[in-house]
Design a protein around this nucleic acid. Sequence first.
RNA 1: GUGACCGUAGCUCAAUCGGCAGAGCUCUGGAUUGUGGCUCCAGCGGUUGUGGGUUCAAGCCCCAUCGGUCACC
Length: 391
Amino acid sequence: MPAFTFTIDAECPDSWARAGTIQTPHGAIQTPIFMPVGTQASVKSVSPEELRQARAQIILANTYHLMLRPGSPLIAELGGLHSFTHWDGPILTDSGGFQVFSLGHLRKLSEDGAAFKSHLDGSAHTLTPESVMRIEAELGADIILPLDICAAYPCSSEEAKAAMERTHRWAERALIAKEKHRPEQTLFGIVQGAFEPELRQESARYTGNLPFPGLSIGGLSVGEPKAMMWEMLRYVTPQLPRDKPRHLLGVGSPEDLVIGVGLGMDMFDCVLPTRVARHGGLFTRSGRVNIKSARFRSERGPVDEGCDCYTCRNYSAAYVHHLLRAGEYLYYRLGSIHNIRFMLRLAGELRAAISAGNYAAYRADFLARYIPASEQVREDQREKWRAARLR
RNA sequence: GUGACCGUAGCUCAAUCGGCAGAGCUCUGGAUUGUGGCUCCAGCGGUUGUGGGUUCAAGCCCCAUCGGUCACC
């Protein structure tokens, strides 16, 4: 029996949306799917039982963070991530490529790999395509990603091309290195190309033709306008093999999920739902609300009317509001559980709509009701934040 | 009872020689996209305890008064 298969269950005639089933050594995943992120081998504040109850099918962990603490040899010694974390479903580990980018002030890139200093204690480390394969083998996830280079936004065409080409060379090295490790693990390729349509197409073709059973689209949602991200996917998706699952790295919000599915994406992972939850941002059918707002002070009803999550079935919005105000730990659980379940229910509804052949209608209905966070405000605040940082 | 010190935003406190009353927290909104459990942005909020006086000008100087803290009786 093969360790990894992807079958397409339904496709849409009027978009690139499709529903599928991925088989992994630790169980099946029905796509489209949202994958909660547990960077340090923990979806912050939420237990594996609670994740299962929210019907999570696969979670993420991060190679960079886990290699620094507690270290991949220790996790291997303790039986790998599944045993270590008590989550027995599928796991995907990110390679640390993004941390090489986001912790840029601590690193030095070369053809061999990325030398960087630990954000924890300043110790020197080097990630190479080969060492990442070894570390991810020790971590033992079902799906693993190779070391890649995420170009900044904005960046020059030369930088974009150089990052993409090195990512391609590293992809081939990763494929060779993986042979030495665990055959039951599945290595996805990563598409780069920044915001250059030709590069995106080239990277999709190149990476799609390598023997990767799945593809992750990287380098997006790094500060660019959303329209630009969607435009890139319109170039990428047609170049990808139809029969391999497509993972949009680091995306996104509820509206991103709905739109991304129509552009051919099957898997999504993002810290946004859990991160904004910790600061009071909870998703509802009509948009994100700030549960810290005084208007919830005496709200008897649930956070989101009609939500089937543990939080909404058992607690009033007033209580959730109080927990956050009071700084109670329980808030983090209840808020995170709500947003995770919201994303997973959304993924499930998208799958059902695709199977029923009415994705376009579902999408139109969702977008008509859901008011997303203001992109203009986000841009303005990002600019102010940058300016403040330079001072 | 006597003396000293202190009363400034909801809270804790700034305010040069008498010269446009400010900050942090709270509060009200907003942001966060392959998680450094980090944060960031904006806003509301004032009869400077009260009443007089001096002065072009008083949170600041003077008098009275109310309240608080401390010390001593």
